[in-house]
Design a protein around this nucleic acid. Sequence first.
DNA 1: CACCGCGTGGCAGCAAATGGCCACCCGGGG
DNA 2: CCCCGGGTGGCCATTTGCTGCCACGCGGTG
Lengths: 217, 217
Amino acid sequence: MTITVHGEKELAARTGHLFAKPEREFLCAAADLNTWSRREARVTAIGDIAHRVQQGLTIRKLYSSAALTDEEQRLHLLDLRSAGAQVRIAATALPHETIISDRKAMILAGRTIRGEREFTATTSTILIEGVHAMFEAAWEGAITLTDYLAQDLPHIDADGKAVLQMLTTGLTDEAAARRMGVSLRTYRRRVAEMMRLLEAESRFQAGVRAGELGLAG
Amino acid sequence: MTITVHGEKELAARTGHLFAKPEREFLCAAADLNTWSRREARVTAIGDIAHRVQQGLTIRKLYSSAALTDEEQRLHLLDLRSAGAQVRIAATALPHETIISDRKAMILAGRTIRGEREFTATTSTILIEGVHAMFEAAWEGAITLTDYLAQDLPHIDADGKAVLQMLTTGLTDEAAARRMGVSLRTYRRRVAEMMRLLEAESRFQAGVRAGELGLAG
DNA sequence: CACCGCGTGGCAGCAAATGGCCACCCGGGG
DNA sequence: CCCCGGGTGGCCATTTGCTGCCACGCGGTG
């Protein structure tokens, strides 16, 4: 059975029961933590996760490097790991979030349309097995959070992300500065800082790099 | 058995025999046609492909949209299809070329280092099955060449790609124009044209888009 | 031949971005 | 209190990017 829903609310309402109580295996792939569930939900869930892992649940979470760029998400990932979840970082952007619960139910997220995302939820074995295989491959190709943190990549805070967001939108510096409530000079300082972090010599290069790191969404 | 070689010559010399005569199934995933085999080889191969398909060989080729941006590759893909190969276009950049021959031998390409690419060739069943699964998933998620051509995406010729290359390198317009042997004015016209094709309002945006389409490699 | 369309290049002017310099404010230490 | 350091913002000079305008050359057509 496969259905398509629009927006997270409808998703939760219609399929929440399928994903609430995984018993054996819970897989999750996403660009970062923000795109999927809201912060409040995350914060309350840690204890629950630890408990379920004790009961024999395997949790594997696969993120893009975008999940490591802000401090809050970074800390949450470490918490997840402490709670017994496995966390890896993939080299790709993972623009379509995926959740597979006990290989019995799956959610695939689509692109955002008019502020809402479209989700496909299914219990079809064929679909789930296929995506599960892809997940496995991606998982195998990804590196552990520990290894990832051992190297280290541009540390971009919420402010930095906001700047990238402005750039991605195509605004001029002046408009972007107004929107962020800072002066033109400061905004440009931030842009320069982003380019330094991304090791880019031109804005075009910075765009490519940001895209690669999944920061331009 | 797994080996790593540097450069296409060494690859051909040491592993050519493993991939020369596929009988059942030949899978190939790559960003575009240029990155893998040279043009001459491609041109002569069409007849051979048709013949093998007659003998029962299944050929599936998965490319990124970058393979559709120049006319020559476009035509070659249509030729491949005529010869009986299945061709699909994936939404991702496919930066690592993959070839799987009869599920018995596999090549994975790495990044380019000092002008040469590094390849890993293997006959390990475990590795091949894993990647094969990923290929399947990617294949299922990709759309056929026919469907892809039905929509249509930016048509970027060799010149346009050269421009994107310059931009990716981070050169100033002046340096890039010199290197391409055109005037500053003309170079900028090309850049503007690229931005139009990529539907970008700023160079940063264009960079992101080019990255998404696998054109910034 | 004249005429046209098209790609190119030079020039000019403007907009955008980049970065140096200095002044300011603020929160710690001496 | 003064002083210091870091983030901010204004001002300004320079560079870089963007584009309209016009001219030139080239190949095709009437």
